[in-house]
Design a protein around this nucleic acid. Structure first.
Lengths: 348, 348
DNA sequence: CTGAAAGCGCTTACAG
DNA sequence: CTGAAAGCGCTTACAG
């Protein structure tokens, strides 16, 4: 009792496999009567196409390979969601590979995806990766490669990123508009581009609103809860202490919040706080954390959309790789509202 | 400049494709000298196996299909992580399909995976699904099917679940041991098995410790933040109000926490609280939420392990499907510690 | 509108 | 230990 093939259907209908294949693929030169009877027979015999055979012959697999550091990180889970959603709607499937931030695993992943003849690869580069030979191999084989979030300009491939500069600008401007006067920033390592961009956005927003940029108010942390706490303690001990803090991302902001809460002279709402990333916890801590949303699911969708458009233009690919820069979205919650009580009363 | 095939390697070495294939697959009857030279030539020519061709001929794809409601839910992201990790270590890849809790999408997913000739399917059933014909089709084709978390006994297939009864028992016992006297439970809809099991665990723990089971202290909520808040307000207005609450899951617990904080007469630490699921936010709210961890990544790993063992025993499959019940892990944080100050001072 | 035939790149039973 | 040959299930250029 082996699987039904197009030959079984052909036999059933006294026709040939070629006709059956064409009918099932809705080939224009097949009469609609034939198509109808083939479809009926296929249904009756419970036929399922063998994709391996189809792709071996046609060269198309309708599979998109996705390479991410870890599906356990909610950011990537969300991006995968967006990618798979678009892929499915266009008849594509997603083959998933995790790198655990390792270069070796990433190179292995690329090899596997090439062996699987994926029609394209969407990837976010591992932290550890500094050589790009595996990605160059993908380019050499003319397989569409799209990067997201952690993009590498040097590779000269399409990418979807978020506008970190603008997100930081919006966050800082919001604090200014709330009336805060001395706004500090806890940044991260400057060799990582996104952190540097956020610092630039902070500085430019201050300048645009004629606020002084004070080097004492800029800390370089290690991007963690502990680091956020430590930097904040130092900031609050300054002779001229800040009245608001923009943290480079939400975990840093969380540490900052803990330090703020422990400060004896602090009253709720006295020190403004904004984070970045809109992590899962940000809405649920007290006070709710104002932050910058990165539109993660949209990022995945746009990456998949670029892939789809590359498929269309296969014969004459665009001269310059497309780069999509997503707009960050400021999410205002209680942590940045000035001198208001933090009671949740009546909140929902 | 098309891709290198085994014929190219054979030509290079004046041998045949058969020998090259055997050498690359480490076939025992090939001399090690031949294997070595084939491998070298393969490397030199940058050969990558064509998996479509291989699996068309051999019938094995080394692909595991995974069906989940959504990768955006951190629980599933974490399970995928576990599955992919084990799969990769054994040379398998993961083909991902999301159902968005829809029966139609789920059936479509199964169809796609069957067409892709996956070697096995690991799935968590959509909330909407009440017919199982698509899963029966998988069984009929003798393709290993493993369910996790949302398992269906009726299908009679292997499954990995968590022991909800035990998790609830541990949570309740912990509150008893902290010295709380009147412990309430906010449950969920009883037609969903996991919620019913948690209620049973709560009741049995009370009984085992000679606590009275008071129907007034058992609420049936809708499993959401709002519902947790509403149920808690009602509980705290009882003439004989509870001094601790075990919530059916962390979002309900979060709502409960909000209600507790707003209660005027409440002092920190006076009302004990435990949740269930160890959601991403649970560690970061104030006070930190004591909860029950579901070992999500382990759940994925175990599901993948079952698949691997089924592969081994392909010829004589086990008579009864294997069921793995994972041990829940109680994570104690501040929300359940009795009459202690909630200061974070010195915490890390 | 349909058929006959070749071939995608592998694997593997059979023969030596 | 290696080779010749068949075949997995499709698709598609060519012919009619």
């Amino acid at each position: 009792m082996s699987r039904t093939t197009i030959h079984d259907i052909a036999k059933e209908l006294n026709t040939t496999a070629a006709t059956v294949s064409r009918a099932l693929n809705d080939h224009p030169s097949i009469s609609s009567a034939t198509k109808e009877s083939v479809r009926r027979a296929a249904q009756k015999l419970n036929y399922q196409q063998n994709r391996a055979a189809s792709s071996l012959r046609s060269g198309k697999t309708f599979v998109i390979g996705v390479i991410i550091p870890s599906a356990e990180i909610s950011f990537f889970g969300s991006v995968i969601h967006g990618i798979e959603k678009v892929a499915k709607s266009r008849g594509y499937n997603v083959l998933l590979f995790q790198t655990n931030e390792s270069y070796e695993d990433e190179a292995q992943g690329i090899r596997t995806l090439l062996q699987s003849n994926v029609d394209g690869i969407i990837a976010s580069i591992s932290k550890e990766t500094t050589r790009y030979d595996h990605f160059l191999e993908v380019k050499k084989r003319k397989i569409p490669l799209i990067l997201f979030d952690r993009a590498i300009d040097e590779l000269d491939v399409p990418a979807v990123v978020i506008d970190d500069y603008k997100g930081a600008y919006l966050a800082t401007e919001h604090l200014i508009q709330q009336g805060f006067q001395r706004i500090a920033h806890i940044s991260g390592p400057q060799h990582i581009q996104i952190f540097h961009e956020r610092l630039r956005g902070y500085v430019d927003a201050l300048k645009a609103h004629h606020h002084k940029v004070d080097g004492d108010l800029i800390m370089y942390g290690k991007v963690s809860i502990d680091s956020g706490r430590i930097c904040t303690e130092q900031l609050l001990n300054l002779p001229q202490r800040p009245d608001a803090i923009f943290a480079v991302e939400d975990f840093t902001a969380l540490g900052a919040l803990q330090a703020i809460k422990e400060t004896p002279w602090n009253k709720p709402g006295q020190i403004g706080l904004v984070g970045f990333a809109n992590e899962a916890f940000s809405a649920y801590i007290t006070p709710g954390l104002t932050t910058v949303d990165q539109q993660t699911a949209l990022m995945g969708q746009e990456a998949a959309n670029i892939f789809m458009s590359l498929r269309q233009e296969e014969e004459n690919p665009p001269e310059f790789p497309q780069k999509i820069v997503l707009d960050p979205v400021l999410i205002v919650r209680q942590s940045s509202l000035r001198r208001k009580s933090q009671s949740n009363h009546g909140g929902k």
